[in-house]
């Protein structure tokens, strides 16, 4: 057996807690950071970490499908965001030049994109509050109702809470989309744990990919018009 095979085999027996710590960090970055690049890197890391838990539930090959689907979503969002940002920068430059020439005033630089309506401190405190909610909920979860292992349930609940928080805090397609993907990734793990099957896995992977495509589309279309300065 190759060493990497041994590592993967060991990972399938890994408890969910180390992964949970990683997910706490990645999802917190998604909530708190202002630059979309951090969100996408965190999302990618999140899919890889979740892949480890999927391995435990589905096995190596099928878990790899999940990681690949998630990893494909990130470039979709990246190219959409990159294209919108460069288009906005170009548009802003042209308009700044025009205003400078016509009015003799140098306008302020445009707001960073995408705009987040709350500041980072508020989001950080809200994330901490969510963590307390998770702690409280996970202590009082009824045993009979849990469809998944006791160590996987907090992971799923945390991703749902973070996804919902991001969705509530913004109406911009890119951050809201990243929040929705976080929420869906948590549900994906939950679903695979209680209903493992090829058809369900295939459809959920297709939904993840289509979600990435739809969010990229909305991000691009939203920025077709709008003032910058």
């Amino acid at each position: 057996m190759y060493p990497w095979q041994q590592i993967l085999a060991d990972l399938t027996h890994l408890s969910a807690w180390p992964v949970f710590v990683g997910l706490l960090i990645t999802s917190s970055v998604i909530v708190v950071a202002s630059d979309w690049r951090f969100w996408l890197w965190s999302l990618l890391a999140q899919y890889v970490l979740l892949g480890v838990l999927h391995m435990r539930v589905l096995g190596l090959e099928l878990a790899l499908t999940k990681v690949v689907a998630g990893a494909l979503v990130c470039p979709m969002l990246y190219w959409a965001a990159r294209s919108v940002e460069s288009e906005r920068a170009h548009k802003a430059e042209v308009e700044r030049e025009r205003i400078t020439k016509e009015k003799g005033e140098v306008p302020l630089p445009p707001l960073p994109w995408p705009v987040r309506s709350t500041n980072w401190m508020f989001r950080l405190l809200t994330t901490l509050l969510l963590f307390l909610v998770l702690y409280s909920v996970s202590r009082s979860l009824p045993e009979g109702l849990l469809l998944v292992d006791a160590d996987i349930a907090p992971v799923c609940i945390w991703l749902w809470l973070v996804g919902l928080l991001v969705l509530v805090l913004t109406s911009e397609p890119l951050p809201a989309g990243v929040g929705l993907l976080t929420l869906v990734s948590g549900f994906d793990l939950f679903f695979d744990a209680f209903s493992p099957g090829l058809v369900g896995l295939g459809i959920l992977s297709a939904i993840t990919l289509l979600l990435g495509l739809a969010i990229s589309y909305l991000t691009t279309v939203r920025e077709l018009t709008g003032e910058l300065l």
Binding site: S171, I203, L204, I207, L211, L218, V221, R222, T225, G226
Partner: peptide, 30 residues
């Protein structure tokens, strides 16, 4: 599951290349 697939595809119908429609489409999707 197939209903969900249809919901995601419906985003393209709802937005339809209209900037203003993206809010409604996103709300529907979420």
């Amino acid at each position: 599951l197939f209903l969900w697939l249809a919901v995601v595809l419906a985003v393209f119908v709802l937005a339809g290349g209209r900037p203003r429609a993206t809010t409604g489409a996103l709300r529907f999707l979420a």
